[in-house]
């Protein structure tokens, strides 16, 4: 494939990855920012979303769109409830101590993975997309007769992939509005800024924590429902989004939601675009090192405040 079309294709693919990553990382960033908790089980809530989506979709025999719609509603709710339960039963009792929560969430990770293996099984299972049309994309080329439009071999996307990008964008924007305009958003931001002061102002910090933890998990689960018609549900699928979300949250700058979204775009897109120029594994190595070096030379992340 020629360079131009290849780059366009890689960019489109990168955008799909970035969209899903932004949602997942947003969930982690929220938990990280407000609760100062490193949730190692975040990827498992993502997995839970995909697995529930499969159960819901396969229980509905009607058109795939109905199954998908139901999954969009049910899977994030389920993941949120499980997360709230985990918060109440475990994290709260640990008083959100950083080291203890790492061990506890590793434990929760094992529990969730094994439960998924026993109920859902070891196979990768697909969920039918609500709609999926292959859309060949045109390309402009300057020839003897000036510009002419043609359809390069392989340059295409699908309607569902475009939908994923749009859906993620809508959620991100509404979430930003929710944070800045709603009362709960205000409370969350207050808790994030200063836990003690929030307490003295009568904010039920523990309830806020529970809800934030649930909301973070629900965002991950929602991202998984979006991706599961493209990639399949599998009980080990949580590792990758966990690592990537972590990177995104740190690169973006701790606690900066805007940074998280920008970093997700950057990392999602660069992964696709670097692959145009190098052999695949080499591209992965370079992309990984690039992330590390960004942090080495800008430890506070892109949007973080420099520590005094």
């Amino acid at each position: 494939m020629e360079f131009g079309p290849h780059l366009l294709l890689a960019t489109l693919e990168g955008a799909v990855g970035a969209a899903v990553l932004a949602l997942t990382a947003l969930g982690l960033s929220l938990v990280f920012g407000v609760m100062r908790v490193v949730n190692v089980a975040h990827g498992e809530f993502y997995m839970l979303g995909a697995v529930v989506a499969w159960f819901v979709a396969s229980a509905m025999s009607a058109h795939p769109a109905f199954g998908f719609m139901a999954a969009v509603l049910i899977a994030p709710a389920m993941a949120g409830l499980v997360a709230i339960l985990a918060d109440r039963l475990v994290l709260k009792r640990l008083h959100y101590d950083p080291e203890a929560t790492i061990v506890a969430t590793i434990g929760i990770l094992y529990i969730m993975q094994q439960t998924a293996l026993m109920t859902f099984g070891p196979e990768a299972r697909p969920v039918a997309p609500p709609f999926n049309t292959r859309i060949p994309l045109p390309w402009l080329e300057y020839g003897e007769n000036g510009f002419n439009l043609f359809y390069p071999w392989g340059l295409s996307t699908t309607s569902y992939k475009l939908f994923v990008i749009a859906a993620a964008a809508v959620i991100l924007v509404s979430f930003a509005l929710f944070l800045s305009r709603s009362r709960f958003g205000l409370i969350m931001r207050a808790t994030q800024l200063d836990r003690e002061t929030a307490l003295t102002f009568g904010i039920p910090v523990e309830r806020v924590y529970s809800l934030v933890f649930g909301l973070g998990a629900a965002l991950a689960a929602f991202a998984a429902v979006l991706i599961v018609p493209i990639q399949q549900a599998h009980y080990l699928m949580g590792a990758d989004p966990l690592l990537l979300s972590f990177i995104v949250v740190i690169i973006g700058g701790l606690g900066s939601l805007r940074g998280t979204v920008v970093a997700a775009l950057l990392i999602g897109m660069s992964d696709g675009i670097i692959s145009v120029f190098f052999s695949p594994t080499l591209a992965k190595i370079l992309a990984t090192l690039l992330v590390a070096l960004v942090l080495v030379f800008r430890p506070q992340g892109l949007y973080g405040k420099k520590r005094a």
Partner: peptide, 27 residues
């Protein structure tokens, strides 16, 4: 390199270096 960072950034930088080493072994 990594000691230029602290806290969670240190975690991520070490994680990334390790991931690169893993991929280099495969490469």
């Amino acid at each position: 390199l990594a000691l230029r960072t602290i806290g969670v950034a240190f975690m991520i930088v070490t994680l990334m270096f390790a991931q690169s080493v893993f991929l280099i072994i495969l490469y």
